[in-house]
Amino acid sequence: MICEDRVVIVTGAGRGLGRAHALEFARQGARVVVNDLGVGPSGEGGSDGPAQTVAEEIRALGGEAVADRSDIATEQGARLLVASALEHFGRLDTLVNNAGFVRDRMLVNLSEEEWDAVTRVHLKGHFLPLKHAGLHWRAESKAGRPVDARVINTSSGAGLLGSVGQGNYSAAKAGIVGLTLVAAAELGRYGVTVNAIAPAARTRMTEEVFARTMAAPEEGVFDAMAPENVSPLVVWLGSAESKDVTGRVFEVEGGRICVMEGFRHGPAADKGARWEPAELGPRIAALLADATPPEPVYGA
């Protein structure tokens, strides 16, 4: 019960990873706002059903939950989402940004609409709930009320290393890492930690890939790709116990957790004056020879 009495928002909580997170938070004592528009795998349509179903599952477990269909990629929707937590439960302690969908294409086939739709739901859909939760926590802190808040953002290996055929998704997920680092630096003074995960799990977004590349697990064998395997880390990051961890990105898959280490200052050369283009070839070659080679892009 490491999240007992904490109030948690989970976006995209109607299915897949979000549903698993919401249920695990409830099992650990949290009161949960289950946010989901109920759209299809590519963002089409919409329904009250998924959010309502998960909220009912939580209540059947003896927990407290409310369904929410706010569009988190709009200013009004993000504001209403935070207001829903405050209206129903009187506070907000943890925000899990998880909502998203994919529209995969090779770059030369990717339409402007497909680019906009994916970056909107992932990147803008992280920024706006984070902004409005941050506004609430800043106000609480300035009013002298203690804040011990958490934000868990959802990036991806595609955002960290790239993924062939997912230029829009990879760019959005990389942007989420940058947003996480900035938010951790800016909101720490108000008692807020901000971290990100890069999960690998079998969901609607990945089921076709797994169907092509992996056999279904045998009965009784640990299913490393089950979404439920990701949730313990998310719940721990959303608890009071993680107060000393912020600005970090964790890769999580099955029973494996890895701290991802991003860009660092590597080998450098300083001439102390302006370089001539013709003299840079051998210098850049020497720097790259001393640098750590990049990990390969997924699908390359």
Rank of each mutant, 00 (worst) to 15 (best):
R15N: 06
G188W: 10
Y169D: 06
G159Y: 08
K124R: 11
D223L: 14
R256D: 13
E241N: 06
W236G: 12
L237S: 07
N195D: 11
D116A: 14
L287G: 04
A201R: 00
V121E: 04
L23P: 13
V10H: 10
V192E: 08
V33D: 09
F250G: 05
V259W: 08
P50C: 00
V147N: 12
G18I: 06
I197F: 07
A184E: 14
A184H: 07
F101C: 03
A285T: 01
N153I: 11
L86D: 00
I9W: 07
R256H: 02
V230P: 08
T119W: 09
T180L: 12
V147D: 14
I176F: 06
R256L: 06
T203D: 03
I9K: 03
E279M: 13
V118T: 10
L92C: 13
N168F: 04
N109E: 09
P146R: 12
R91N: 06
A26E: 14
K173S: 11
M260G: 03
Q28I: 04
D244Y: 02
Y169T: 13
P41T: 04
D5I: 03
A215V: 09
R27P: 05
G220W: 12
G188P: 04
G18M: 12
A268T: 14
F25G: 10
Q166H: 15
A133Q: 05
L110E: 11
E113S: 08
G77L: 04
P296N: 11
P277H: 03
M214E: 12
A85M: 04
A99Q: 10
S231G: 11
E207C: 00
V252K: 07
T180V: 05
F89G: 01
L237H: 00
I9Y: 11
W137A: 02
P199K: 01
